[in-house]
Amino acid sequence: MDARTPLTAESLTATAAGLADELGLDQVTVSEVARRVGVKPASVYFHLRGTDDLRGRVSTLALAELADRLGLALAGRADRDALGALVDTIRTYANEHPGRWEATQVRITAPDAEAPGGRVAALMLAVVRGYDLPEAELTHAVRLIGSTINGFVRLHVNGGFDRSEPDPEASWLRMTQALDSALTHWPTDEDTTR
């Protein structure tokens, strides 16, 4: 942080978000952020309640950034095109901001996260609604998409695809096609009781 940048909850959150991307969310602490901005931890505590508050603010920031990106990427798209934009946008964000992405994937108590988290969920629901699923199935479909993306991203980041062919990009394309197929041919109540 520049010496002329005022110390605020927002500036400390930005520093923490950068730290999360650089070293991982588990390294985001009041002490480390204080060291990064060149102040004593007591100065950080003047603006924040502690490490949990700081990590929660990173989660809120990440969800807001992701919601903004998704809103732009999904505008004017529908069906498979919207699904592709959704999964590609989320994956790109996760690759560019691994620590922030991690903050969106863990249970963090952050009262302000509800609004941007709700925006992300609403955008995902809008994509799923394009497949004309019954209302009772929408949450299941959103969970399928989120779990699939998160699993792929985590495996890729952790080197799970490093020693195998084909290239992960080909697998990503297949995964997107498989999600589209699953949403297009969603099981009925009869299918799930067998």
Score class of each variant (00 low, 15 high):
His156Ala: 13
Arg36Thr: 05
Leu123Lys: 04
Leu19Cys: 03
Leu173Glu: 15
Ser11Lys: 04
Gly24Arg: 02
Arg163Ile: 03
Thr148Tyr: 03
Thr188Ile: 02
Asp189Gly: 09
Thr192Glu: 08
Ala9Met: 11
Gly130Ser: 13
Thr15Met: 10
Asp52Met: 05
Leu123Ile: 05
Gly118Phe: 09
Glu32Gly: 07
Val120Trp: 03
Val128Ile: 15
Trp186Ala: 00
Glu190Asn: 06
Gly50Ala: 02
Pro98Asn: 09
Ala113Trp: 05
Ile145Thr: 03
Ser43Glu: 14
Asp52Phe: 03
Thr15Leu: 10
Leu48Pro: 12
Val33Cys: 07
Met124Tyr: 10
Gly117Met: 04
His156Met: 10
Leu23Pro: 00
Thr109Phe: 11
Leu183Ser: 02
Ala3Ser: 15
Leu63Arg: 12
Arg55Glu: 08
Ala126Leu: 09
Ile90Arg: 14
Arg163Trp: 10
Ala182Gln: 11
Ala75Met: 08
Val87Cys: 08
Gly71Ile: 00
Asp26His: 12
Asp21Met: 01
Tyr45Val: 03
Asn150Val: 11
Glu10Ala: 15
Leu179Glu: 01
Arg100Phe: 09
Val106Arg: 14
Ala85Lys: 08
Val30Lys: 05
Gly160Trp: 05
Gln27Met: 09
Asp68Gly: 03
Tyr93Phe: 15
Gln105Val: 06
His97Pro: 04
Leu25Arg: 01
Glu165Trp: 09
Thr188His: 04
Met1Val: 15
Asp52Cys: 01
Ser164Trp: 08
Ile149Phe: 06
Glu114Leu: 12
Leu179Tyr: 02
Asp2Cys: 07
Thr139Val: 12
Leu7Gly: 07
Ala75Leu: 10
Asp81Lys: 07
Ala113Asp: 06
Glu135Gln: 13
Leu61Asp: 08
Gly99Phe: 01
Arg35Gly: 05
Pro6Ile: 10
Asp53Ala: 03
Ala182Tyr: 06
Gly151Trp: 00
Ser164Glu: 12
Arg4Ile: 13
Ser31Trp: 10
Leu61Lys: 12
Leu70Val: 00
Gly146Arg: 14
Met175Ser: 11
Asp81Phe: 02
Ala94Trp: 06
Pro166Ser: 04
His185Cys: 04
Leu23Asp: 11
Glu96His: 14
Thr139Glu: 13
His185Lys: 05
Ala67Pro: 00
Ile108Tyr: 13
Val142Arg: 04
Thr192Ile: 12
Phe161Cys: 04
Val39Cys: 05
Ser181His: 13
Gly118Cys: 06
Ala16Cys: 08
Arg174Gln: 14
Leu155Asp: 11
Ala115Tyr: 09
Gly56Leu: 07
Pro134Arg: 15
Met1Glu: 14
Leu25Met: 03
Ser43Ala: 15
Arg154Met: 11
Val157Pro: 01
Val30Trp: 04
Gly99Tyr: 01
Arg36Tyr: 03
Gly38Ala: 02
Leu138Cys: 08
Thr184Ser: 11
Glu32Cys: 09
Thr139Met: 08
Gly84Val: 07
Asp79Val: 06
Tyr93His: 14
Leu86Lys: 07
Gly24Ser: 02
Arg119Ser: 08
Asp180Ile: 00
Val120Asp: 07
Ala75His: 12
Ala3Tyr: 14
